[in-house]
Amino acid sequence: MQTIRSINLQKNLGDVLRTADVETVLVTNRDQPRAVVMSAEEFIRLKTAAGEPVPNEVRKSSPTLHRRIADPLGYDTRDPGYVEQTASDALDGQHADEIAREIDKAMRRWRLR
Results as ranks from 00 to 15, higher is better:
M1T: 06
M1K: 15
Q2I: 10
Q2K: 13
T3F: 04
T3I: 15
T3L: 11
T3S: 09
R5P: 06
I7W: 15
I7E: 15
N8Q: 14
Q10I: 12
Q10L: 14
Q10T: 11
K11G: 00
N12S: 11
N12M: 11
L13A: 06
L13N: 03
D15S: 13
D15H: 10
D15M: 13
V16P: 00
R18M: 11
T19R: 07
A20K: 10
D21H: 07
V22R: 15
E23L: 11
T24V: 14
T24F: 05
V25G: 07
L26T: 01
L26I: 00
V27A: 06
N29R: 13
R30H: 13
R30K: 13
D31R: 12
P33T: 08
P33I: 05
R34V: 01
R34Y: 13
M38G: 12
S39C: 04
S39Y: 01
A40R: 14
F43H: 15
R45H: 13
L46S: 07
L46I: 08
T48H: 04
T48S: 12
T48I: 02
T48E: 10
A49N: 09
A50W: 04
G51W: 08
G51C: 10
E52C: 11
E52Y: 10
E52S: 11
P53A: 05
V54S: 07
P55A: 13
N56E: 12
E57D: 14
V58G: 04
V58C: 09
R59D: 00
R59P: 00
R59N: 06
R59I: 03
K60E: 15
K60D: 14
S61T: 12
S62T: 14
P63Q: 04
T64M: 10
T64R: 10
L65D: 03
L65T: 08
L65G: 00
H66D: 08
R67D: 09
R68V: 01
R68I: 01
I69H: 11
A70V: 09
D71T: 03
D71F: 02
D71M: 05
P72T: 05
P72K: 14
L73Q: 07
L73P: 01
L73T: 02
G74S: 03
G74E: 05
G74Y: 02
G74C: 07
Y75R: 01
Y75C: 02
Y75E: 04
D76M: 00
D76Q: 04
D76W: 00
T77I: 02
T77Q: 15
T77E: 14
D79L: 08
P80L: 00
P80K: 00
G81Y: 01
V83A: 03
V83D: 01
E84G: 14
E84H: 10
T86E: 08
T86M: 10
T86F: 15
A87L: 10
S88A: 12
S88M: 07
S88Y: 10
D89G: 05
D89C: 05
A90H: 07
L91I: 02
D92M: 06
Q94F: 04
Q94V: 02
Q94P: 02
H95G: 02
A96G: 03
A96S: 06
D97R: 05
E98M: 08
E98T: 12
I99D: 04
A100W: 01
R101C: 00
R101L: 12
I103A: 08
I103H: 09
K105N: 07
A106H: 12
A106V: 06
M107E: 05
R109E: 06
R111W: 00
R111C: 04
R111T: 00
R111S: 08
R111K: 09
L112R: 05
R113W: 00
